[in-house]
Design a protein around this nucleic acid. Structure first.
Lengths: 230, 230
DNA sequence: GCATTCTAAACTGTATACAATTGTGAATGC
DNA sequence: GCATTCACAATTGTATACAGTTTAGAATGC
């Protein structure tokens, strides 16, 4: 009954998405039998996937008690933002030093290309996806696979909160969120001018600004998770 | 037949150690049945542990082909050193800002306390353990659990190479390796003076220096792994 | 009522069985 | 000789069974 594409991978991807979206409530205990039925797989591949997610920081595990969703606390989210600063600033510094002009120009093209979408997009999820892509491409310019790995993991764990933050910004400031785009331009300007200090300062300020709004976003997240809107 | 302490945890710890030490050769395919027999557990808990190690970057996985040891290349090791710079420099910066005087003083005490051991210790593994402890405690002063998590993981994956590098330094420069200790003092001085720029510069130079020796250490690692010494 | 003990149900932990896939080496054709 | 095909051995993928542990709720004593 086996397939070309393995079941554990499908299960893993589904669970990762669910964990990122807090489809499991913070600290919620995960019932393996129930979940395996829902995902159409037996407990063996399910547990393999769950173990991966533990190692990635999406879930926790207690002996003889099973798997739990990670907690959602301001401290946790603030730490993730700081980790992003660590990873992205160092990557940017490296990119300034070693990315070649062609690679940098390609990122500049991308930035210009998405600008109209960025201005007009109303769906926060789309905006976030574009933002993540920009940041990821920056880190890729560092040529360091580990830093890229780390950023991907951080992005996945922080996305739920960032999405809330973005929605909140939109609601507060109207349809457009001008700050993000100009911040990206400032970062890119530093990079293309090989001015790592300027680029890093822009990056730090860019992330730090959202970090300052994170505690409030966590509060909203809780109210959404525990008092369904619909 | 279950125990108070789970099997999967024991298996996981053992495998992690083996993977860190390259008890599996780089790129080597891992035979599950054989390994499960060696570890005295069935394939089910073994595979759960293996999956965790994949997520942690110790192993890789290919569909229907199983688990493999990670590659060992200069690029990979150089990337790990750079990731350490990212994590440790940002943590240090944070520590300068938010660690209280008492915590910093405690780290200073630790530094003084191990100084005699550091001077006299001949076993590179001991030296490395002390070095790792210092760096880990520094990161803990940042108060950021994610950065600590990241450093622990990086340390475990880079340890084998660092050990070789340390042995080589000892063989080259005689019994004592004076540079490390004074570098630690310089980093600490920056921290205790709340001079994050100075502390960060010292940290960066400290790690970068070893990074420059990493390629040669990888070469030696290969010769050790593929041409047993005894 | 409230805490405590006991019992059964629910759940997790792991071994095992077997299906599906991959790897290997002999047999075959050129 | 060299590549190709085929069969079977070795290995991985997953379901299932059952042992052991935790949890929840009823029964009991105070």
């Amino acid at each position: 009954m086996a397939k070309r594409e393995s079941n554990v991978d499908r299960v893993y991807q589904a669970l990762r998405q669910m964990a990122a979206d807090f489809a499991f409530m913070p600290d919620q205990r995960i019932n393996e039998s129930e979940l395996s039925k829902a995902l159409g797989a037996s407990r063996t591949p399910l547990r393999e996937a769950l173990n991966r997610l533990v190692a990635e920081g999406f879930l926790t595990f207690q002996n003889n008690r099973g798997f739990f969703c990670r907690s959602l606390t301001p401290k946790y989210i603030l730490d993730l933002y700081q980790a992003r600063v660590a990873v992205e600033c160092e990557a940017l510094r490296l990119a300034c030093r070693r990315a070649d002009d062609q690679e940098i120009a390609a990122l500049g093209d991308y930035l210009e290309q998405i600008e109209p979408d960025y201005e007009s997009a109303s769906d926060p999820a789309e905006l976030l996806a574009m933002d993540e892509t920009f940041h990821l491409r920056l880190v890729q310019l560092s040529g360091n696979g580990e830093l890229e790995r780390l950023l991907r993991n951080l992005n996945d764990r922080i996305r739920y909160i960032r999405l809330i933050d973005l929605k909140r910004m939109r609601d507060k400031m109207g349809a457009r969120v001008p700050g993000e785009l100009s911040a990206h331009r400032r970062i890119f300007l530093g990079l293309s001018g090989r001015d790592s200090a300027a680029a890093e300062a822009a990056m730090r300020g860019h992330i730090e600004k959202r970090r300052e709004a994170a505690t409030e976003a966590v509060r909203i997240a809780f109210s959404q998770l525990y008092v369904p809107q619909d």
